[in-house]
């Protein structure tokens, strides 16, 4: 069995903790509870015949004052960038984080998750910037921690990329 560190990164309030809770514990709460520092969790899954334990680092979100500490991403085998589909500005923050993380850990696999897909009527993201990222090679998934849409698939996909 192999073990991989995975960081979940993004602006504050985009649903990082909810995504991890949905994936690890299969639960969701509408109540927003902010994260300070890091919550570490783990879950084992199979990639083909290979068992992989993901050590999930749910890192406190970035805001105007506090940037994500790069010490947290050290040793990560992959990472998620999470943006909130109802807040267009969180996509820009995700792009900014990606450039810093890439400088810290190198070209490790990552996925961009556009979360809160269940709030489609309040969606604030236009298609163009997302399509531009996809054109540049990013993999983008629409997820909902509330409904579970694409959550399992996202972790499975990242795990597959980390062990391949």
């Amino acid at each position: 069995m192999i073990q991989k560190k995975v960081c979940v990164l993004g602006s504050f309030g985009v649903g990082k903790t909810s995504l991890v809770r949905r994936y690890v514990q299969s639960i969701f709460s509408d109540t927003y509870l902010t994260t300070v520092g890091v919550k570490v969790d783990k879950k084992t899954l199979s990639v083909g015949t290979q068992e992989v334990t993901l050590v999930l680092w749910d890192v406190a979100g970035e805001d105007d004052v506090n940037a994500i500490r790069m010490t947290y991403v050290r040793g990560a085998g992959g990472y998620f960038l999470v943006a909130d589909g109802t807040r267009a500005e969180t996509l820009e923050i995700a792009k900014s984080i990606q450039s810093r993380v890439a400088a810290e850990v190198g070209p490790v696999p990552f996925l961009l998750l556009l979360n809160k897909a269940d709030l489609q009527e309040s969606w604030d993201l236009s298609r163009e910037p997302v399509e531009a990222l996809e054109s540049s090679g990013w993999t983008v998934l629409r997820t909902s921690a509330k409904s579970g849409e694409n959550v399992e698939e996202a972790f499975q996909e990242l795990a597959k990329r980390m062990v391949s």
Binding site: Q3, K4, K5, V36, G37, V38, K39, V40, K42, T53, V55, W57, A60, R69, T71, Y72, R74, G75, A76, G77
Partner: peptide
């Protein structure tokens, strides 16, 4: 140690010293 304390996965060997991880659950 990483099998017993997974949060240390990827942290060792140290690239710099001293090194601090703040507010870890």
């Amino acid at each position: 140690v990483c099998d017993q304390l997974p949060l240390l996965e990827g942290m060792l060997p140290l690239p710099e010293s001293p090194f601090l991880l703040q507010s870890i659950g």
